[in-house]
Structures are given as structure tokens and as C-alpha cells.
């Protein structure tokens, strides 16, 4: 019932200290924009690493002269494996042909070699969810036990690199997002704390007249949420400008940047994030209200 009155009080207070509040809004906007940029970078790193499993494969080199029946059995075994997406047999001749294709003008390297030195192999593509160090190592250990397989090769270093890039990006961004969110909360906290102290006398009178905690807190929580939300709207405008410049201006000059993706869901999320952080800051600033 008193919410309307609380809104009125909050708006009056916001207007009375408009310049300080504007500064708070801009600071919140800067913080949220930094969070947006961090999220944008991590999102693109994540997207890039998600595309990589398609290029990842495990090569099974077969013993020379392995009978066709045993080769077929190994292939069938691979196809049955839950981690395997696809298993492609590469015969000795096909392997040589592919090598020649790769070498192109440098095929003189193969001159003088009469006998095909390449072994027959099976190229295994793993399912997306299995392309991680633990699963791949487990899979490789399993297939090494299979009779008829001479050697197994996979990009261990490649996998490790992807893993550490992903891990570092996630940890770094998470830390930055936490720090920036704490910063935004702190700005709201300080602004509300100052407003609360400015109106301390009035609040004491309200308490003595029978105001509940809700009645006392409501205008400040509204103030915090308005500051946070306007900060979010301002950061949304900045993010929109960034999006426009990057995707309509910069990509015209540097076309490779078109591979970048800006998640559009970020735009409406910013005012909501600002609002929630603003409420958080206000609630912390008000603490426990005592009556005696």
C-alpha cells in the first residue's frame, strides 16, 4: 500500500541529489560495460574452442599385413564405442595418395622409395563431449590394448593448449566479472549509505511513529534499483555503440573480424543486471534496521 509513497520519496531523493546520482549512474554504466566486454571476449573464445573438436582426430596405425577380417573387426569395435562419432579406414595406398596430395610440388621427397612405407590406419573422430583430455586418454588407453593396433597418435599438446586457453579465459573473466560486479554493488552501496545518513533524522522519526522495516527500506531499495537500472541502460547504449562500430565499421576494414559474435541477449540483460546489483548494494547499505 505504501509502495506508491516509497516511489515518490525515492524519486524526490534522486532528484534532490541529481548530480551525485548521475555520477553514480555513469560509474555503474562503466562497470557494466567492462563486464560486457569481458563477456564478449570469453564468449568468442568459448565459441572458437567449441568449433575445434570437429578438427580433432585420433589415428590408429594398424600392424602391417593385418588380415582384412581383423581390420574389419577393429573398425566394428570402434563404431560401437560410445565416444566415437566416426571411424574411417585409410588403406596403405590411400594413405600414400593423401600424402602426395599434401606434399603437392614437394613430392620429390618420395622419389626413390619403391615400397609404400605408410601403414594402414583408422581415423577416429570423437563425439564433441568426448574431446577433453580425460576422455581422450581413457579412450586411447582402451584401444591400445586391442590386438592388431601398432600405434595410436592424437594431438595431446593441441588438446592441452585448448584446455588451458579455455581455463585461463574462464578464470580470468570470472575474476574480472566478480570484481566489476563488486565495484557496481559498492557504488550503489555508497550512494544509498550517503542518502540514508542524510535522512537519518527523518528515519528515526518514522521509526518512532511506527514505521516497519519494509516502509523504511523501500524508498532506498527503489533508489538503488533505479540507479542500477539507469546504469544498465547507459551501459546498454554503450554496448550498442560498440556493437555498431565493431560489426558495421571495423569489419568493413578488417573482414576477418566477421567471425566474431556478439550475443544480442546481452542488451536486455544489462538493465536487469544493473537493477539486481543496485538492489543488492542498497540492501547491504541498509543492513539491519533496529527499533530500540
Amino acid at each position: 500500500m505504501y509502495l506508491l509513497y516509497s516511489f515518490r520519496l525515492a524519486l524526490q531523493s534522486l532528484w534532490r541529489e541529481k548530480w551525485i546520482n548521475l555520477l553514480s549512474v555513469l560509474t555503474i554504466a562503466a562497470g557494466l560495460f567492462m563486464i560486457t566486454l569481458t563477456f564478449f571476449v570469453v564468449y568468442n573464445i568459448d565459441l572458437a574452442t567449441k568449433r575445434l573438436p570437429a578438427r580433432f582426430s585420433v589415428m590408429l596405425y594398424l600392424n602391417d599385413g593385418l588380415p582384412e577380417q581383423e581390420t574389419g573387426s577393429i573398425i566394428a569395435q570402434m563404431k560401437k564405442n560410445n565416444a566415437v562419432e566416426q571411424a574411417r579406414y585409410i588403406a596403405k595406398d590411400k594413405a600414400l595418395e593423401e600424402l602426395k596430395g599434401v606434399l603437392k610440388n614437394a613430392d620429390y621427397i618420395l622419389e626413390g622409395i619403391d615400397e609404400n612405407p605408410l601403414p594402414a590406419s583408422i581415423e577416429i573422430k570423437l563425439k564433441k563431449e568426448s574431446v577433453n583430455i580425460a576422455s581422450v586418454k581413457k579412450f586411447v588407453a582402451e584401444i591400445k590394448e586391442i590386438k592388431g593396433i601398432a600405434d595410436v597418435e592424437y594431438g595431446e599438446q593441441f588438446l592441452n593448449s585448448i584446455n588451458s586457453i579455455k581455463g585461463m579465459a574462464k578464470a580470468g573473466s570470472l575474476s574480472l566479472i566478480i570484481i566489476m560486479s563488486a565495484g557496481v554493488i559498492f557504488v550503489c552501496y555508497s550512494t544509498i549509505k550517503i542518502a540514508f545518513y542524510r535522512r537519518k533524522e527523518e528515519i528515526e522519526t518514522f521509526k518512532l511513529l511506527g514505521a516497519t522495516r519494509g516502509f523504511i527500506r523501500a524508498p532506498f531499495v527503489i533508489e538503488g534499483s533505479v540507479l542500477g537500472m539507469f546504469g544498465g541502460i547507459a551501459s546498454m547504449a554503450a554496448a550498442f555503440a560498440f556493437h555498431y562500430v565493431l560489426f558495421y565499421k571495423v569489419t568493413a576494414a578488417i573482414p576477418i573480424l566477421t567471425i566474431l559474435v556478439f550475443p544480442l541477449e546481452t542488451f536486455p540483460a544489462l538493465p536487469v543486471a544493473g537493477l539486481l546489483l543496485g538492489i543488492g548494494g542498497a540492501v547491504i547499505a541498509l543492513g539491519r534496521i533496529r527499533f530500540s
Partner: peptide, 22 residues
């Protein structure tokens, strides 16, 4: 309980020595 204080205070009108007018 502390949370009940406001409701008791609503039953008590006070003319404060320092007026406490806003």
C-alpha cells in the same frame, strides 16, 4: 519481538520534547 515494535508504537501517539517535525 523487535519486529512487533512498530505495531505497538502505532497504538502510542507521542508528543516529543524536540517536536521531531520534518
Amino acid at each position: 519481538k523487535e519486529s512487533s515494535i512498530p505495531f505497538l508504537r502505532r497504538n502510542i501517539g507521542v508528543v516529543f520534547q524536540d517536536s521531531r517535525l520534518l
